[in-house]
Design a protein around this nucleic acid. Structure first.
Length: 590
RNA sequence: GGCGCUGUAGCUCAAUUGGUUAGAGCACUGGACUGUCGAUCCAGAGGUUGCGGGUUCGAGCCCCGUCAGCGUCGCCA
């Protein structure tokens, strides 16, 4: 080792020791006679002093050539700082290293990204991604990656203690056209054939259950070639779990324990178990979304029965057309949002397909201030206000449309006002389950039924018979874990009954030949003694993002990609040689 | 694919209604300084205003296109 200690561990107990530190120059202060260097590594900062008489003139001369991000090896004596010179901002602030020897291990160009920059001087993200090695030197980012290491290790330990086995599954697999777009890998040996990178190890883990590995876990990289968002990357990490001889409660119970352990260890939060559960139907009715943020209220209230009693044409027309009039009551929203602010909300909902935004401000005298108040009788307004629970100063926001559209708009509004008005404690961490998702959803374009989760999802036992009569009413043994309104994981109990499986395929319009071609291996395996089984996958990146209270998933991934899925550091994806294409029998068009 | 925001010195930003030679802080270079801690002080250097076109007597600013980054809708079983 070139060093005897790290830059974060020396203290008063080491005074008098001769030590050697290695690290990067975080900053330097040249005083003419002597020079101070704050030396940084991932453990901390230590002040190094190059000052006579401790430091020889030649060493001082060399020290004056150091610049930001030079890599130094410094030997010296640990000394208590002079009276009144301690720096309370540093954990090592009571001591300093009086240098006797200096070796410049490496120089650095002037860094375009300063690891010690404060938030307001932080360079643009494109530059940080291009010089990611500099960005990753920032203590904030190091803290996150170190936390990530701890959390993932905590996950692995937790499952290992409960007899789960970590089994690796292939990255080169078979494309299944359902779901997200696949990343494809051309085969050199089989011209015209392609592997697909896994969107998740779903089918493999089911095979492992059939193979008798009744408790499986894997930290698995997954790939989806879809457009990106602040919380989505083209490759991401799932904590993938599958268990045999279980029902929904067993899987959720295991994850409850994991959540409690990690929340306590990382956040110091005691979760009450079992974690709260609401059904999908209830989530949609009360919050308009299948991953509601339960940190605050402002729940959706259905006013479809009252609204048409007004003279407001829009409301009447929507309800007569089979639509809904629903609203949220925003506490103190009338004080928070000016008319101009409400105009902003109106523009906002137009982005979600709404034609406009009807609203009421509740005044102190019990009256309602609104451009549409004149269409409502005082009695009707009072009835609506009562149902909404409105208090003076509140703001009521309406959505009148088909049920799905009101969900979308009101969820978007609720989320936006919740964030803007800080309706919740930013430190709060709310875990909950959303259960009993629909088995099927009608595809708008084709009119065909599509699996809401995947075609192997088991229905609730009491809903099996609905397969023949009313598939839209069927609910699944499916459960999503929601943290602060963010989908942090999801899973299902799988179908292990071949008769039910066939009926599901039939409903989805997947004929026997297609079944065999796409999932033949699984359908075969299911006929050789498949145990009842189910599992879940947790979004590791999102957990880290939430635990670290980060705004972007890119801030918890060492080498993330941009919105267009490029890596600005390596310039991936890149062009390849004609030779490589020839091997693969691929010709570029245009 | 749609909508929106951003792009000015190495970095973070400013530049009045379209108007003289595009400024500041940090970083950088040279100098001063025996205790600083984002050191301080003096001096200096540093610009194809992302790129291409247009309007105008005149464009960093207006218009069109394009590239890149970000946010978002669609998309993500």
């Amino acid at each position: 080792m070139l060093r005897t200690h790290t830059c974060g561990e020396l203290g008063e107990l080491n005074v008098g020791n001769v030590v050697t530190l290695c690290g990067w120059v975080d900053s330097y202060r040249d005083h003419g006679g002597g020079l101070f260097v704050d030396l940084r590594d991932r453990y901390g900062l230590t002040q190094v002093v190059f000052n006579p008489p401790d430091t020889a003139p030649g060493v001082i001369e060399l020290s004056k050539t150091v610049r930001a991000e030079y890599v130094l090896k410094v030997t010296g004596v640990v000394a208590a700082r002079p009276e009144g010179m301690a720096n309370p901002k540093l954990s090592t602030g009571k001591i300093e290293l009086r240098a006797t020897a200096l070796e410049i291990l490496n120089k650095s160009l002037t860094p375009p990204v300063s690891p010690n920059a404060n938030a307001q001087d932080l360079p643009g993200e494109d530059l940080r991604l291009k010089h990611r090695y500099l960005d990753l030197r920032r203590p904030e980012l190091q803290k996150v990656l170190i936390m990530r290491d701890r959390v993932v290790k905590g996950m692995r330990d937790y499952f290992a203690q409960q007899q789960f086995i970590d089994v690796e599954t292939p990255c080169l697999g078979r494309s299944t056209p359902e779901g997200a777009r696949d990343y494809l890998v051309p085969s050199r040996v089989h011209h015209g054939s392609f592997y697909a990178l896994p969107q998740s190890p779903q089918l493999y883990k089911q095979i492992l259950m059939i193979a008798g590995y009744d408790r499986y876990v894997q930290v698995a990289r997954c790939f989806r070639d879809e457009d990106l968002r602040a919380d989505r990357q083209p490759e991401f990490t799932q904590l993938d779990v599958e268990m045999s001889f279980v029902d929904s409660d067993d899987v959720m119970g295991i994850i409850d324990g994991l959540a409690a352990k990690l929340a306590k260890e990382e956040l110091g939060i005691e979760l009450t178990l079992p974690l709260p559960r609401i059904t999908y139907d209830e989530a949609m009715e009360r919050f308009g979304h299948d991953a509601p943020d339960l940190r605050f209220g402002a729940e959706i209230v259905d006013l479809s029965d009252l609204a048409p009693q007004s003279e407001f044409g829009v409301f009447k027309a929507v309800v007569e057309g089979g639509g809904k009039v629903r609203a949220i009551n925003v506490p103190k929203g009338g004080e928070f949002y000016s008319r101009r602010g409400i105009d902003g909300l109106t523009e906002f909902v137009k982005g979600f397909g709404a034609k406009g935004l009807a609203w009421f401000k509740c005044e102190e005298d019990g009256k309602l201030n609104s451009t549409i108040a004149k269409f409502f009788s005082p009695e009707l307004l009072a009835t609506m206000a009562t149902r909404l629970g409105s208090q003076p100063g509140d703001l009521v926001l309406f959505s009148a449309d088909n049920w799905e559209a009101t969900c979308k708009v009101l969820h978007a509004l609720r989320t936006k006002v919740g964030r803007e008005m800080k309706l919740y404690d930013p430190q709060a961490m709310h875990f909950s389950w959303v259960v009993e998702f629909p088995m099927f959803a009608k595809d708008e374009e084709s009119g065909h039924w599509a699996a809401m989760h995947h075609p192997f999802t088991a229905p609730l036992d009491e809903h099996v018979s609905l397969l023949d009569t009313d598939p839209g009413k069927m609910r699944a043994k499916a459960y999503d874990l929601v943290i602060n309104g963010s989908e942090a994981g999801g899973g299902t109990i799988r179908i292990h009954d071949s008769e039910v499986q066939s009926k599901v395929f039939a409903l989805l319009g997947i004929d026997e030949a297609t079944q065999q071609e796409r999932f033949g291996f699984l359908l075969d395996a299911l006929q050789y003694g498949a145990p009842p089984h189910g599992g879940i996958a947790l979004g590791v990146d999102r957990w880290i993002m939430l635990f670290g209270r980060l705004e972007s998933i890119r801030d918890c991934i060492a080498f993330p990609k941009t919105q267009k899925a490029s890596d600005l550091m390596t310039d991936a994806p890149g062009r390849v040689d004609a030779r490589q294409l020839r091997d693969l029998a691929i010709k570029l068009v245009e």
